[in-house]
Amino acid sequence: MTGSSASVGPGAATADLAPGRPVISAQGVSKRFRRKDQVVTAIKDVDLDVSSGEFVCIVGPSGCGKSTLLNMSAGLMEPSKGKLLFAGEPVTGPNTSVGYITQKDNLMPWHTVEGNIGLALHIRKTDKAKARARVAEMIEMVGLQGFEKSYPGELSGGMRKRVTLARTLAYDPPVLLADEPFGALDAQLKLVMQAEMQRIWAETGKTILFVTHDISEAVALGDRVIVMSSRPGQVKVDRRIDFPRPRDVFKIRHQPGFADLAEELWDILAADMHSGEDM
């Protein structure tokens, strides 16, 4: 698995990313790990289609294999069984069409904010002046003006998260994978970031697969909410969310129907909460 020989390249993928077409398609996907002397089945027979332009949220008890699903979509892992297709093609190496926002912020500590946000642009040999303009644009978008020359170690957790978001959006990948991106943020900043995420999604038409443990976040943002069972993770419910867009993430929680929906999903999730083993 070398970085350059990914079968799914940005050029190859865009052709098949027409709106409504399935971008990520899991077909009977299972994944097993060897942990010490034990074989752990992280997910089992997962079928899931994410269409182009969709905002899909996945919730589930911890250790249900949500991250595993994202890792496979990103091409960092391969399924033990079944097929995982990206734009109709099996994912065999690092998938350069996705931007992956992981739980950990994974910034390069030796680069400044600017350097981190421009990383993909430098790797992709974007024209210097263009790259600089793009980085400035991203910094403004996430509100980090004045911190261009700061190192990640000097920033707060929330600011680092914003740098990660800016870094991922800077190179404009058509698909975003987000693994509990706002999990560590305080409640207020979380709402701000949710609103930002929704705005970016609406403006760019990206496909977003968003893992969270927060049901109200999932309901507020998603076109669909997938509830997964505890390990081995399986799709329990695939629920369409019909609140009109654009949604006001600050107020949607008070909208009629929201509480019922969240409670319904919570009940499905809670049934599994205690039967699952610990991570």
């Binding site: 970085g3 990914a6 690092p94 350069t96 992956y100 950990k104 994974n106 790797i123 992709r124």
Partner: peptide
């Protein structure tokens, strides 16, 4: 950090990019 290597791989980085942008500064 394997995760940092993965970041560069997902951005389309080659082995050389990984060496130059992650391994070298990280082990400096």
């Amino acid at each position: 950090d394997r995760d940092l290597v993965d970041v560069v791989r997902l951005m389309g980085g080659t082995r050389r990019d990984i060496l130059r942008r992650v391994v070298l500064p990280s082990s400096a």
